[in-house]
Design a protein around this nucleic acid. Structure first.
Length: 218
DNA sequence: GCCAACGTTGGC
DNA sequence: GCCAACGTTGGC
């Protein structure tokens, strides 16, 4: 049922943001977790950087093209769109943690060359994903009721392309290297939580990845 | 609340 | 297009 994460245009429902249900906070294991710099000593770690996946190449799902690459975001009015269609609880919960002004990587998945294409900014915090109620939408969810919506989305605004495309293959090399000898990408969610479509990054991870822009491809 | 069957993700 | 990894569902 719920496939890809994809974003797309939509008029802002301007509705206030509900909070849907209580997030199934698993035991708050004192997990080490290098939170994104914030020092909430306990409680869910607050991340402040993100990676969001979307498919830049056409793929049809129920006759609907789910293609949405960074160029598509850039082409929207205000270069802004809503990140709808997320139908995974962990991914949703991360979106609910997002704060205005935070930065996220736009990751191209399920395509010729997967990897990071650019940077975007969160410009509207989590609110109800209206596509869950739309029977004609690929991500329609018959189990979600308007008086208790299950799924959320955020609005994101295009910031810029990375100076060069940062391929998954290269990030993986760093990840393996860092895992062996230590380094900022040793626990990067892209590899430790591969299938998650919305992932948290620490500022260290984010900054390191961005620094690769100025490096020669590995 | 366990866990097997099933469905999806997404790299290759 | 394959298929491994893993999240979700549903029977018990």
């Amino acid at each position: 049922m719920p496939p890809k994460t994809r974003a797309r245009v939509s008029k802002r429902p301007a509705s206030s943001d509900y909070d849907g249900e209580k997030v199934g906070s698993k035991r708050k294991a004192a997990a080490s977790v290098e939170s994104g710099k914030t020092e909430e000593s306990s409680e869910p770690p607050q991340y402040c950087r993100w990676l969001m996946k979307s498919e830049p190449e056409s793929r049809f799902e129920n006759g609907i093209d789910v293609k949405f690459g960074i160029e598509d975001l850039k082409a929207l009015p205000d270069q802004t769109g809503c990140w709808d269609g997320v139908r995974n609880y962990q991914a949703r919960n991360y979106m609910r943690q997002m704060k205005n002004e935070q930065l996220a990587f736009f990751y191209h998945s399920n395509c010729k060359e997967p990897g990071i294409a650019g940077v975007m900014k969160i410009v509207k915090e989590a609110y109800v994903d209206h596509t869950q109620f739309d029977k004609k939408d690929v991500h329609f969810d018959a189990n979600s009721k308007p008086d208790n919506p299950k799924w959320s989305m955020v609005d994101v605004q295009y910031q810029r392309m990375t100076k060069r495309f940062l391929p998954l293959s290269e990030l993986k090399k760093y990840h393996l290297q860092h895992r062996a000898k230590g380094g900022p990408l040793k626990d990067m969610a892209l590899f430790t939580r591969a299938r998650l479509s919305v992932q948290p990054l620490t500022t260290e991870e984010f900054d390191f990845v961005l620094s690769l822009e100025d490096e020669e491809p590995l």
